[in-house]
Structure formats: C-alpha cells, structure tokens
C-alpha cells in the first residue's frame, strides 16, 4: 500500500516537473520572437515544410472526411427525415472540429516527428554545441523559427482542409445522394457563422504551436544516440496528439460553453 502511494506521488512529481520544464521551454522560445537577430531563411524553410509539403496529406484526409461525413449523416438523419441538415453538418463539423483536429494530428505525425528527429540528431552529434561555439543561440536558430512557422502555417492548412472537406461533402451529396447542387451550397453557407471559422482557426494556431513545441522540446533534450532520438520522436508525436485532443476540448469550452 505504501509502495503504491509512493509510486503515485513520484509519478505526480515527475509530471509536475516535466510540465514546468516544458512551460519554461515554451516561454524561452516565445521570448526569442521579440529579440533580434532573426533567421528569415530558417523561418521560410520551416514554413514551406509545414505549409506546402503537408498539403497532400492534409488534403487527402480532408476530402475523405468530408465525403464520409456526408454519407454518415445522410444515412443517420434519414431515420428521422432530417436529410436536409447534411450540408450544415458537414460544414460545421469540418470548420469547428475535424479540420483543425485532423490537420493537427496529421501534422503532428509528419512535422512533429521530423522536428524531434532532426533536432535530436543535432543534439547527439554535438551540432547544437557547435552552434553555441559559433556564437549562435540554438534556441533562436532552431526552436523559434519552428514555433513561428507552426503557429502561422497550420491555420492556412486548415482553411484549405475546410474547403476541401466541404467540397468532398458536396461531391457525395450531389452525385451520390442526389441533392440539388444549388440547394446544397445554399444550405452549406446558410448556417455557417463567423465564430465557427474563427474558433477553428484559433484551434489550428494553438495546435500548430503545440506540435512544433513538442517536436523541438523532445528533440532538444534527447540523449543517448540513435535510440534516444527514436524515443524522442515517439514521445513528440504521442504527447502532441494527446495535447491536441485535450486543448481541443478546452478551446471548444472557451468558445461555445454558455
């Protein structure tokens, strides 16, 4: 019994310590945004990596999600004769929930993992120490550009995902379920409010920040050669995914709980 309590206590303390370190890491990374020098090439490279090269993955996820949403809600709503709500359900689910969450998870797998692997490799091969000896702050050079790029690019990706998702729903609705194209589009935009889009884009910015933060954090503190880098990569993806899902709830609560 005592052993059991002690182990709970220890886990809790480890958790608190890790949270503290992560917050400190985040604060340091953000504080460097306000202090020159800046590394525009690094920022640009990350933006292209996150924004442009994630387009195919996010686009595919979005189109199938939009399509399946239309199909599922149609068959579900048919049970109480509410098929007319399909377009609204698709657009609200995409903009408020699935666009940001799915894009966030896909980017966590793609970008979070590669950040942790790249920075982790730099750590274990002394490249981060080399930056210091070349009078370059590794935080400013490695972490800040990634945080900035993640926060800026994920909302853009989500705009694209929303549009593609709605388009997927439209294709299924019109060509498979026999909706009138004009009526479907009308239904799509009739009930869409500004807050739906804004809340989704806020989520996207937060998720982008989280993915970059955890990728950098786990990479930066990785140790112990190839195995350590592997662990860091796994931890970056898993912790980013969990944080995305929990922050998703918190942000939804902040926006929509009355």
């Amino acid at each position: 019994m005592q052993w059991f309590l002690a182990s709970i206590g220890r886990t809790f303390l480890t958790f608190i310590a890790a949270t503290g370190r992560l917050s400190l890491f985040a604060a340091l990374g953000v504080s460097h945004c306000a202090r020159p020098p800046y590394y525009p090439r690094q920022i640009l490279r990350q933006m292209v990596d996150i924004g442009y090269f994630s387009l195919p993955v996010v686009g595919l996820t979005a189109i199938f999600t939009g399509m399946v949403l239309a199909l599922q809600s149609y068959t579900g709503f048919a049970r109480f004769q509410a098929q007319g709500a399909v377009a609204t359900v698709v657009v609200l689910s995409m903009t408020r929930e699935l666009g940001p969450v799915l894009a966030g998870l896909m980017v966590a797998g793609r970008i979070g993992a590669s950040m942790a692997a790249e920075i982790g490799t730099m750590r274990v091969t002394d490249q981060i120490d080399a930056l210091v000896t070349l009078s370059t702050n590794p935080f400013k050079y490695l972490v800040t550009p990634r945080l900035l790029a993640g926060t800026l690019m994920l909302p853009l990706l989500v705009v694209v995902a929303d549009i593609i998702g709605v388009f997927g729903g439209y294709v299924v609705g019109v060509y498979k379920l026999g909706f009138n194209p004009a009526v479907y589009l009308d239904n799509t935009f009739e009930h869409l409010e500004r807050i739906d889009v804004i809340s989704g884009l806020t989520k996207a910015a937060v998720f982008g920040f989280l993915v970059s933060l955890l990728g950098c954090y786990h990479g930066y503190y990785s140790r112990g050669g190839a195995q350590g880098v592997g662990t860091a990569t796994t931890n970056a993806v898993v912790s980013a995914s969990i944080l995305i899902l929990s922050f998703n709830y918190v942000i939804t609560e902040l926006f929509f709980a009355k």
Binding site: E118, T125, D126, A130, T133, L134, T136, Y141
Partner: peptide, 26 residues
Amino acid sequence: GMLFQGSALFDSLKVWENVAFSLLQV
C-alpha cells in the same frame, strides 16, 4: 573556433554554408 571530436557539421547545410556559418549568421 572549435573543431569537435565528431566534426559536428550541420547536415542540413551545404559544405560551403557550414564553413561560412558564422560569417553569414553572426
């Protein structure tokens, strides 16, 4: 200037960018 035991070259940069690193960035 420091020469590391394992060289520690930046593998995301070309050789000349490695050599010119502090000239370009600092």
